[in-house]
Design a protein around this nucleic acid. Structure first.
Length: 600
RNA sequence: GGGGGCGUGGUGAAGUCUGGAGUUCACGCCGGCCUGUCAAGCCGGAGGUCGCGGGUUCAAAUCCCGUCGCUCCCGCCA
């Protein structure tokens, strides 16, 4: 057996002085003084300085001179204290160095396509094309380690609480609900398709029927929708489900997970219990169901203040059942043009308009609409908004969801901290069962297997009925959601009915699942946490690609491997699939993926 | 499907608004000097058809049109 090393260089400390060690790693930096030369040797544990001194080292000057960035080398030498005054307190290994006796090049490296330097980023598609180099950078290596630490902490809590890790299939049946499915053609059944799972939802519920009682899985999920900085087609969730517990049981477990993960990655304890807020309260105070509570700037309700107002914009809105809401943007230092921009933005977000006011030093209010409001109304507004001189007030009169939604967005634009080490976990509870879809019909707020708090309420007033569902929010990002599930077939049928899915349709799509519910299904509930989002927030990364080892670009491509690519005609024929002529025509003019090599 | 931003030696940027010689800065690369540096330093050098195509112009990195790629956002994400 070949021994490449006896120690990891990054772990060497003053205690190790006097030991002979063998190290292996990469040349992170070389400082050649003509005589003595220093090499920063990097391995997975960190960096240690090695010294090549011609007076004491048999290492060949030719070998030394040939060394370039990122050569993979092995060295043998003595750990010793650095000479007086040359310690480097910036480095964990800064008190020691390794005096090289023997130095071997295990593997040379070409000149790099970009510099592995955390001070600035290369173009991202270049980084992705050479991801194996990008991942050598401290920042990326730290992200990989953090990701591993997060999953380790999750597993620890799950195992401690008696959860059983079960793998569910990744080739499943397509259900035309929710997001687009990623499809996989079947060779044995030409013309038919598997789907990659959007989540293990129905399988984990079947595991409850199967008597597993406590299930978890680090599950890869797929949703074929457009990319965002926090969304990839392929992503990872901690998926969990349990029987004979309720919302409290789930939230208690989630809190333990959050605490365990933060402890493992950040080394700190989060405040417990994690605060809770109802969906309605979140919408009213922050205009979103995933509020960032690291800062205030809450939305205020001004209906009573303007109940008798003669200002048409307010009076008409209130008469139509709308609402007047205000936001104190603080001393934003906005110019007239700046306010005009906010007005345009509010309109783009769907509001009929946006009224702005600035509180002057003497307490009076400067605003294009000040003349339409009475002195009492203006004074009341300043009081209600707790405004100080210099503060900018933004007011929207509109239908509830529009009013709070627009102000909620402006709140984020004007107040959101850019980088912030604080971690503000929050549970949002009491989501509605349904919400209005774009087409005017009702859609499940979570998914159609979520239990309503009250079946009668759901039937009588589906628009306002509350469900037993909950989200976990961290710093304004939705980390995941879950619910108590429906465990009796009758309630499940009623939900489908309200959603406009007939018994026949439900039977075709979910009959296999509905049937399972008829065999003594225990009450059960669960959750799924987005691992990528959690890690990116913990690591202060703005984009989940930074915490995924091999992510795709926004157009779904992998610059490294060339995926997605075309396949040979023969492969398609076996699958009973043909690429349309108009699509083939596009191949010559643009992307069209990587073509397969010509087969003989 | 829609809106915004970006594309300049190997890398990152400035130059583009207001057209006038491929100009500049930092890093890297190559060569030389240098025995205590740690983003080593000093000296010298090479390297770019300004993403691609078309147009306007005496003249285009710069203005116009198209196209490709990357990115952020809206839609979408049960």
């Amino acid at each position: 057996m070949t021994t490449y090393r006896t120690r990891h260089g990054g772990t060497l400390r003053a205690d190790d002085i006097g030991t002979e060690v063998q190290l292996a790693g990469w040349v992170a930096r070389r400082r050649d003084h003509g005589g003595v030369a220093f090499i920063d040797l990097r391995d997975a544990s960190g960096i240690v300085q090695i010294v090549v001194n011609p007076d004491e080292s048999p290492a060949s000057p030719e070998v030394l001179r040939s060394l370039r960035s990122e050569f993979c080398i092995s060295v043998t030498g003595l750990v010793r204290a650095r000479p007086e005054g040359t310690n480097n307190p910036e480095m964990k290994t800064g008190e020691v160095e390794v005096a090289v006796g023997k130095l071997d090049v295990l593997s040379p490296a070409d000149v790099l396509p970009f510099q592995l330097d955390d001070r600035f980023d290369a173009d991202e598609s270049r980084r992705l094309k050479y991801r194996y180099l990008d991942l050598r950078r401290d920042r990326m290596a730290a992200n990989l380690r953090a990701r591993s630490a997060v999953i380790k902490a999750m597993r620890h809590v799950m195992e401690e609480r008696g959860f059983l890790e079960v793998e569910t299939p990744t080739l499943v049946v397509s259900t035309p609900e929710g997001a687009r499915d990623m499809l996989v053609p079947s060779r044995l059944r030409p013309g038919q398709f598997y789907a990659l799972p959007q989540s293990p939802q129905l399988f984990k519920q079947l595991l409850m029927v199967a008597g597993v009682e406590r299930y978890y899985q680090i599950a890869r999920c797929y949703r074929d929708e457009d990319f965002r900085s926090d969304r990839q087609v392929e992503f990872t969730q901690l998926d969990l489900e349990g029987s004979f517990w309720d919302q409290e049981g789930v939230l208690d477990t989630l809190e333990a997970i959050a605490a365990g993960v933060v402890r493992e990655v950040r080394g700190i304890d989060i405040p417990r219990p994690i605060p809770r807020m109802t969906y309605n309260e979140a919408m009213s105070r922050y205009g979103t169901d995933k509020p960032d509570v690291r800062f205030g700037m809450e939305i205020r309700q001004l209906d009573e203040l303007f109940a008798a107002s003669e200002f048409r914009a307010f009076a008409d809105t209130l008469a139509e059942g709308g609402t007047v809401r205000g936001l104190n943007a603080g001393n934003a230092g906005l110019s007239r043009a700046g306010f005009d921009k906010l007005v345009d933005q509010a309109k783009a977000l769907g509001a009929k308009g946006l009224f702005w006011m600035v509180v002057e030093e003497d307490g009076t209010v400067r605003s294009p609409v000040a003349k339409f409001l009475t002195p009492d109304e203006l004074a009341g507004l300043v009081a209600a908004m707790e405004a100080q001189p210099g503060d900018a007030l933004l007011v929207v009169a509109d239908e509830f969801h529009t009013a709070v939604g627009v102000l909620g967005q402006l709140r984020l634009d004007l107040g959101q901290p850019e980088r912030h080490d604080d971690l503000e976990f929050l549970f949002i509870v009491d989501f509605p069962v349904f919400e209005r879809a774009a087409d005017g019909g009702l859609a499940p707020a979570h998914h159609p297997f979520t239990a309503p708090v009250d079946v009668e309420e759901m039937r009588n007033s589906p628009e306002t009925a509350v469900s037993k569902s909950y989200d976990m929010v961290l710093n304004g990002a939705e980390l995941g959601s879950g619910s108590v599930r429906i465990h009796d077939p009758e309630t499940q049928s009623q939900v489908f009915e309200i959603l406009g899915i007939s018994r026949e349709q439900a039977e075709v799509r979910f009959g296999w699942f509905m049937e399972a519910l008829r065999y003594g299904t225990p009450p059960h509930a669960g959750f799924a946490i987005g691992v990528d989002r959690l890690v990116s927030i913990l690591q202060n990364e703005q984009n989940i690609r930074e915490v995924m080892p091999f992510p795709k670009t926004q157009t779904g491509a992998d610059p490294l491997t060339g995926a997605p690519g075309r396949v040979e005609e023969g492969q398609l024929a076996e699958l009973g699939i043909e690429v349309r002529a108009d699509v083939k025509a596009e191949w010559s003019s643009s992307q069209g993926g990587v073509a397969p090599p010509e087969s003989a």
